[in-house]
């Protein structure tokens, strides 16, 4: 478990490897299976998640500690966070559409879906649940989003190869993808115990 007493390095490694958000914590799986068909789209998705997640946790941390807590409105955090994140994603969508139309076309419906990407919202909640300080919550969200990118890019690489391999008929498509994810998750489980985490 992560706490505010841990050093920055340990928080980072724990967020990225030991508690990898996709393979160990099971958060953000829809996009993990949805956009990982091709290497380029999954890199694009990873970058989008890094960008949104870091900014979202900065904004949500400030909103929680400087607006909700002083007014004793903690029970509104679910609604507040999701609305904050939804508007941030709109912003990012506009930026990507303007600067990189190719990427925008490749990711298609998945950009608006980042709004309902549980990974972004989960990190906003976990920053609060773990009682992280402002600086450490940035490090944590950076670690989580890099872990997300690492996992989704590796997974896309494996899936591109699976497409060329003879897979039993009923396992074609999603079933074999899940079993691949299971083996990757097993590998990530090996990080458990690293630095006594």
């Amino acid at each position: 478990m992560i706490s505010n007493n841990m050093s920055i390095f340990l928080i980072f490694i724990s967020a990225m490897m030991v508690n990898n958000i996709l393979l160990i914590r099971f958060i953000g799986l829809c996009s993990f299976f949805g956009v990982s068909n091709r290497m380029e789209t999954s890199i694009g998705m990873g970058m989008a998640v890094i960008f949104v997640m870091v900014i979202a946790s900065i904004v949500s941390w400030l909103v929680y500690h400087h607006i909700l807590v002083p007014f004793h409105l903690e029970f509104l955090r679910t609604a507040t966070f999701i609305l904050t994140i939804a508007s941030l994603v709109q912003l990012e969508e506009m930026v990507i559409r303007k600067n990189s139309p190719n990427l925008y076309r490749a990711m298609g419906i998945y950009l608006p879906l980042i709004t309902t990407n549980c990974a972004i919202l989960a990190v906003a909640f976990l920053n609060i649940d773990y009682n992280l300080s402002f600086f450490k919550s940035i490090i944590y969200s950076l670690g989580v989003s890099l872990g997300y990118t690492l996992a989704i890019v590796m997974f896309a690489g494996i899936r591109e190869r699976i497409e060329l391999s003879p897979v039993p008929k009923s396992f074609k498509g999603y079933p074999i993808a899940f079993i691949t994810a299971s083996l990757m998750s097993l590998a990530f489980l090996g990080f458990k115990g690293l630095f006594g985490l």
Binding site: T78, I82, T116, C118, L121, A122, F125, L126, D129
Partner: peptide, 8 residues
């Protein structure tokens, strides 16, 4: 954390 995450 999966309870608040029902929202998404």
């Amino acid at each position: 954390v999966f309870i608040p995450l029902i929202v998404v």
